[in-house]
Every structure is written in structure tokens, then in C-alpha cells.
């Protein structure tokens, strides 16, 4: 029902997958189901948190640190146009 997949170099078998190109077996189905359940459980908790570390610290950051939240590209554009003093 299943065949052993070995490396092209003929190394020892490393994994068992179903024959005939089918990719699902009972074991795979169970593993996939567990992952889905775990993902569904974690989802709300993750989404309730901040989407980036910066979004949390930005709110707490002093105004003097505002320039640090620019991307390198935007910071470079500001420097080039010499408009940074208005923001600092």
C-alpha cells in the first residue's frame, strides 16, 4: 500500500508516503487535522495581539524617537529633501 522513498543517491529510506501519487493517508489526515485544530485554537489569541513589535512600543515611545519608525527608504528621502527637521 505504501512505498519507501529513498534519496536519489540510494541512501537509506527516510520516509513513507502512499503509493500511486496519493498524498493522504490516515496518519497524514490525523496530522493535518491536529494542525488545523491547533491553528484554530491559536488564531484568536494571535490576532488579539499586536501585529508588530513596533506598534506596541511606538505608542509608548517619546516623540523624539518618531523618526526611528521610518523605513530606510523614507528616512533617506527625508534626508535628501532636508525635511527631517520638521518631524524631529
Amino acid at each position: 500500500m505504501a512505498k519507501l522513498c529513498s534519496s536519489a543517491a540510494g541512501a537509506s529510506p527516510v520516509h513513507v508516503v502512499p503509493a500511486g501519487g496519493a498524498v493522504f493517508s490516515r496518519r497524514l489526515f490525523l496530522d493535518a487535522s491536529l494542525a488545523v485544530v491547533a491553528g484554530a485554537t491559536m488564531g484568536p489569541e494571535v490576532s488579539a495581539k499586536e501585529t508588530s513589535p513596533s506598534s506596541a512600543v511606538k505608542r509608548l515611545a517619546p516623540a523624539s524617537e518618531a523618526l526611528a519608525f521610518l523605513s530606510l527608504e523614507d528616512a533617506s528621502a527625508l534626508l535628501r529633501t532636508k525635511k527631517y527637521r520638521r518631524l524631529s
Binding site: C5, S7, A8, A9, V14, H15, V17, V23, F24, R27, L28, D31, A32, A35
Partner: peptide, 19 residues
Amino acid sequence: PRDYSSRGFILIFIPPWRW
């Protein structure tokens, strides 16, 4: 790398990888 696809992959990664 076809060989790599079956080496060290845990079972849960195989279906999406093959897809």
C-alpha cells in the same frame, strides 16, 4: 530539490509541498 523534499520533512509538510 526533489531529494530534499523527502528528507527530514515531517509528515505534515508533505501534502502542501506535493501540492
